[in-house]
Design a protein around this nucleic acid. Sequence first.
DNA 1: GTAAGTACCCACCTTGAGGTTAGTGTGAAA
DNA 2: TTTCACACTAACCTCAAGGTGGGTACTTAC
Lengths: 137, 137
Amino acid sequence: MSERPDDPDIFKGGMPALSARLERGDILSELCPSRGILRHLASRWGFMVLLVLMTGTHRFSELRRKIGGVSEKMLAQTLQWLEGDGLVLRVSYPVVPPHVEYSLTPLGLEAGGRVKDLADWVEINLPRIAAAREAAQ
Amino acid sequence: MSERPDDPDIFKGGMPALSARLERGDILSELCPSRGILRHLASRWGFMVLLVLMTGTHRFSELRRKIGGVSEKMLAQTLQWLEGDGLVLRVSYPVVPPHVEYSLTPLGLEAGGRVKDLADWVEINLPRIAAAREAAQ
DNA sequence: GTAAGTACCCACCTTGAGGTTAGTGTGAAA
DNA sequence: TTTCACACTAACCTCAAGGTGGGTACTTAC
């Protein structure tokens, strides 16, 4: 990891203070809160919610239709996780029938960019991965 | 939600045929194989294996020591997934005690770069996310 | 002689992600 | 009149991800 040149011995015997590693954010540590965030946005549905919201604001049922196979329950839960992490903005209009709009916050837009990079790479390289799979067979 | 259409109108409007979307790799579709790959490399431990292997070749127990909290079983299973996807190279020397070296394939190196981007972003932006969390209360 | 390290595999168990079904209260369309 | 769409919530269930503890066949170090 290139931004960790100062502590080659971070993992050997003499670890720097745990608190220092956590402040900076050390995902390899068991206690680091970044693990939880990553579980949300790299979850099965979190990934795809970000991908769709990258294309613009959506209503709940629009998201549900675009993301193949997601259940109402999991979509609602995933949206709540991402809202709690400050990545997704939920705007509810008090009309009937209900009208709720979901979009990305600036934070969510940044994260979404990275997520999209990874997803795009996987999609583009599917043939190479499939080939590796058969070779490994 | 009994709508289980066969179904090209998940996406209304002029979407290309499902088969074409799958060839290109359409992660939003239920049947796209990229979902499985993503489950592996965005899994709890797959993520961190890639991060550590980005720093170079490692032995099994080196990985285990560096990745806080991973069990032997899950590390072995994760490595097998990633090896099967052609992202990780496993080289075993027939000596005793056993000696096995894990490294990234060119494919794994590319994927690892994206994974690292995402992980770095999360680590760096932990404070902003924590602030959003408190604001959401 | 015994403890620890090596890279695992096996059997069993727990946990939580995720699925299924049902229900809410309205307005609008059939 | 009945049905549907909307955006959910609650209850219940399943199943794989993940954890725990044991064993292996050796070697080196204490």
